[in-house]
Amino acid sequence: MPNPFSDLLETRGVLLADGATGTNLFNMGLMSGDAPELWNTQEPQKIKALYKGAVDAGSDLFLTNSFGANAARLKLHSAEKRVHELSRVAAEIGREVADTAGRAVIVAGSVGPTGEIMEPVGTLSHALAVEMFHETADGLKAGGADIGWLETISAPEEYRAAAEGFALAGLDWCGTMSFDTAGRTMMGLTSADMVKMVDDLGDLAPLAFGANCGTGASDLLRTILGFAAQGAERPIIAKGNAGIPKYVDGHIHYDGTPELMADYAVMARASGARIIGGCCGTMPEHLRHMREALDTRRMDHPPALEEIVDRLGAFSSVADGTDKENTPARRATRRSRRAG
């Protein structure tokens, strides 16, 4: 079936996604520990400004403020019964921004991890995880999202559960994982593992897949090159952080400049990515530079690792995750809320 996302990707070839959610909302006054999703009804104008900031900077696609809109996370704020409502409103605000943009813009319904560890390592059952994802996806679809957008996932079991949840809601989707542990996800997947996992999903597979968040832009590009090396046929997503987080004057600050993110965008496209955006720390000013770079600059070869380091900074680990001798141990810990 035709999909606005696939149609726009075919037309443009490469899409610029958005930047950070959390970083931008913190700059608008969100307090650490608060649920950003509650702002969908409490501060709708600020959520509209978040979306519009990306669109005005040149993004072809933006994610809704629904990353933590699931029963497990919202229960921490006594809002577990508002999953569908908050997801729907997040998409409705996005729909208004996209429909008044004056050009084609995709509303992607953000869906983050449940925050729980799935069986057999943890206690969250597959059936319950599927229902959590289904509830969020259904709300996003009701609000007018063009696609669902799974992000920051580390466990293959959770990725598969989300795929089933999107299918139950009848919502096409894209899905990224976070490779933040020496080139692997927290639960041990490599870039090659993810390509195989996505292929094995068959009819449940996403429209596009890739990596987001993690550590710095250098590490993320190394993962993108890993996807491309597997001959992945689906479009690849690159959504890297704006540099490395540093604690400055009581706040987390990302050191990636707009110029660095412009270089990253061009190198991401040359590495094989077709949907390119930013994650934590990425502001509209970064996106403006990324837009200009993608429109005016060309790189006709995949970057060598040395070139990535020279332009974007050192990798956080020597290993890229594929060396079995450097395989990190599986850790049964809860992933914290994305800093964004």
Rank of each mutant, 00 (worst) to 15 (best):
A262H: 03
A228I: 01
R184E: 12
P245Q: 02
A273I: 07
I252C: 09
I237W: 01
G210M: 10
R269I: 00
T282G: 07
L220Y: 01
D193C: 14
D199Q: 15
A205M: 08
M194R: 13
V266R: 13
S271T: 09
A273C: 05
T257K: 11
G256E: 10
G281Y: 04
D199P: 01
M267L: 15
G277L: 10
M186G: 09
A205W: 09
M194Y: 12
M197C: 15
C279H: 09
V266F: 12
G281W: 03
R222F: 03
A232S: 15
G240V: 01
P284C: 05
G210Y: 01
G250R: 02
G202Y: 05
D219R: 02
I237Q: 04
S271A: 14
D199H: 15
H251P: 00
T185D: 13
G202E: 08
V195N: 03
L260N: 00
L189S: 12
L189C: 14
E259R: 11
S191T: 13
Q230T: 13
D263K: 15
G281H: 11
Q230C: 15
K239W: 03
T185P: 08
A205F: 12
G250D: 01
A208K: 00
F209G: 07
A238M: 10
L221F: 08
I244T: 13
D263G: 02
P235S: 00
G281Q: 04
V198H: 10
L220K: 04
A268V: 01
T215I: 14
A229Y: 08
S191L: 06
R269S: 00
I236D: 01
D255A: 08
F209K: 09
D199Y: 08
D193W: 14
K196G: 05
E233V: 11
A265K: 02
H253Q: 08
D193M: 13
G277W: 11
T257G: 07
I276E: 02
R269K: 14
A268Q: 03
D263A: 13
T223G: 00
N241C: 10
K246A: 14
I276M: 06
G240T: 02
M186A: 08
I224L: 10
S218K: 05
